[in-house]
């Protein structure tokens, strides 16, 4: 094996970097797999909504009202106030608005966004919950209209499976490659070099 030491050192370095990277990517992929990470949302928006839901319990949207009765509607507050009798329901509402993604703005959940569409979606979420729909039904309702984009947890399907599989596959491949490429003849190499050095010394 007559290889330039610089190149050899370089290839070794590249290989170890490759292994480190693949391990990192593997770890990241597994972190992403856990639902806790995907649902990790902005606490600020949630806190604001908690406040909103607690304040002003007297006024609330009236979804069932007929259009004809529009002009007789009482003057309403600007902020939306969603009233829940059941604390569990309220928790569910806050979870939903944190999990659902605003389709208009880039990467904000509907609890956090002030876009008109986010207001509408919060109101719709509330309405659907009042109708007795559970969390998954509300998410499904939104998905039918706005696609998988609207939920922060992407479904695992034929397209998205690669997000999880590719990094792991890459890490495994790199590991196999690394093990296969390890050469046991380094010692011999050194021995032959030492012999050559001895020879040179003798020649002098």
């Amino acid at each position: 094996m007559s290889k330039k030491p610089v190149l050899k050192g370089l290839s070794k370095f590249v290989r170890s970097v490759g292994v480190c990277m693949s391990v990192c990517i593997g770890v990241a992929a597994f972190t992403l797999c856990t639902p806790a990470f995907a649902q990790n949302s902005d606490d600020v928006g949630q806190a604001a909504l908690i406040q909103q839901t607690e304040l002003n319990p007297q006024s609330q949207p009236q979804p069932g009202q007929t259009p004809a009765g529009l002009q007789e509607r009482p003057k309403q507050e600007y902020a939306e106030n969603y009233v829940f009798v059941d604390a569990g329901k309220r928790r569910e509402f806050l979870e939903l608005t944190a999990e659902l993604r605003c389709p208009k703005c880039q990467n904000q959940n509907i609890a956090d966004s002030d876009a008109p569409i986010a207001h509408d979606m919060r109101r719709k979420t509330y309405e659907l919950m009042q109708e007795g729909k559970d969390k998954s039904q509300v998410i499904e309702w939104m998905k039918v209209r706005y696609g998988d984009f609207v939920h922060y947890q992407p479904p695992v399907n034929a397209v998205t499976i690669w997000l999880w599989v590719l990094p792991v596959l890459f890490a495994v491949l790199m590991l196999v490659f690394f093990i296969l490429r390890r050469k046991p003849d380094i010692e011999q190499d050194i021995e032959s070099k030492l012999a050559r050095a001895d020879q040179m010394l003798k020649d002098d």
Binding site: P67, P103, D120, R145
Partner: peptide, 16 residues
């Protein structure tokens, strides 16, 4: 058509 509560807009997947 007056979409009073913007329900039809939501059904259509309107974002703005």
């Amino acid at each position: 058509i007056f979409d009073v509560f913007r329900d039809t807009a939501l059904d259509l997947g309107v974002t703005g």
